[in-house]
Amino acid sequence: MAAFARRLALGPKQQARLERASLLDAACLSGLSVMFLGGAWLPADGAGHRGRPVAAFAVVLAGLVVFCLAFVVQVMVVVSGQPAFLLAREKAMGVRPRSVGSGDPASAGTEVSVYRDDADSYAQLRRYEVYIDGKRVGRLRRGELVNIPVAAGSHSVQVRISWRSSGEVPVEVGSGERVSLICRAKPGARTDLGGVTRQRDGFLLLREV
């Protein structure tokens, strides 16, 4: 939908609304998927169980209703910004950290903090996995923050989702210090179907702040 919106030459404000209400994209795609499934269920030659064509038509009709409703609401959001609750930005939420340090008292308060940008519209219902020195230490939904205690010194940080990941970011953490990083998917990731299948490293962005 975002790519389609760009073709319609929407303004920056309208495009931003579309990105922030991207769950409606999933509803539209779900409706289309249900329609295709219902169509595939129809017998090619009209043969089969007597009730099968009726059930398949009902499935197609249900998918059409879902698609139309989601599309109409999406147009309303883009044009007027309503319903406003679909545009509400999530607040950062604390995630219980998992200790990966050596347990040395000297490293108390020494940690790496990773925040997933709440404007990240890619895979909103899934979590990014946070790795430090090759070990998974936390998982992040959009707008979430995780603080990981580490030993003072050099570490590498990476975020992953399925087979896609960011590059490994080296950090130097002093005793009693916190190093903060922010992550999100690369711009346009949600509509770049080719990048999802081809690109491995660099699909997610991770940087120190």
Rank of each mutant, 00 (worst) to 15 (best):
Y131G: 00
F57D: 11
L87S: 12
A152M: 13
S162C: 02
A47E: 07
G134V: 07
P149C: 10
V157W: 11
A70N: 03
V196C: 03
V130H: 10
R127C: 09
L18N: 05
R190M: 12
G174L: 06
E177N: 11
L193Q: 03
R139G: 14
G176Q: 10
S102C: 05
A56D: 13
L206G: 11
H155P: 12
I148R: 06
V59M: 13
R198M: 10
S165R: 15
Y122W: 07
Q14N: 04
P170V: 00
W163T: 11
R50D: 10
V169A: 05
L42A: 10
L37S: 11
W41H: 10
Q15A: 04
P83G: 07
F4R: 01
G46Y: 13
P105G: 02
L23K: 05
S154D: 12
V173Y: 03
S166M: 09
G46A: 11
L206T: 08
K91H: 08
F67M: 03
G63K: 02
A21T: 12
V146M: 02
F4G: 00
D120V: 11
A70S: 08
T110Y: 08
T197K: 12
L42E: 09
V100G: 07
A16G: 04
R198P: 01
V169S: 02
A56T: 01
A152T: 09
G48E: 13
R136G: 05
K186D: 04
A84W: 09
M1W: 06
A21G: 09
I132P: 04
L42C: 08
K91R: 13
S30A: 14
A47W: 03
L32D: 02
M76F: 05
L69H: 12
R126P: 00
Q158N: 13
G188M: 03
G48V: 02
R207M: 04
P53I: 01
A2Q: 06
Q74M: 14
Y131A: 07
S30Y: 12
I182P: 00
L61I: 00
R139Q: 15
R141V: 09
V146H: 04
A123Y: 15
Q15L: 15
I182S: 08
P83L: 10
A16F: 01
V60F: 11
S180D: 06
V77Y: 05
P43K: 11
S154A: 11
A55S: 12
G11S: 04
F203R: 14
C28T: 14
S102H: 03
Q74K: 15
T197P: 00
G143P: 03
F67A: 08
M76E: 14
R98I: 13
C28I: 15
A26F: 10
K135I: 02
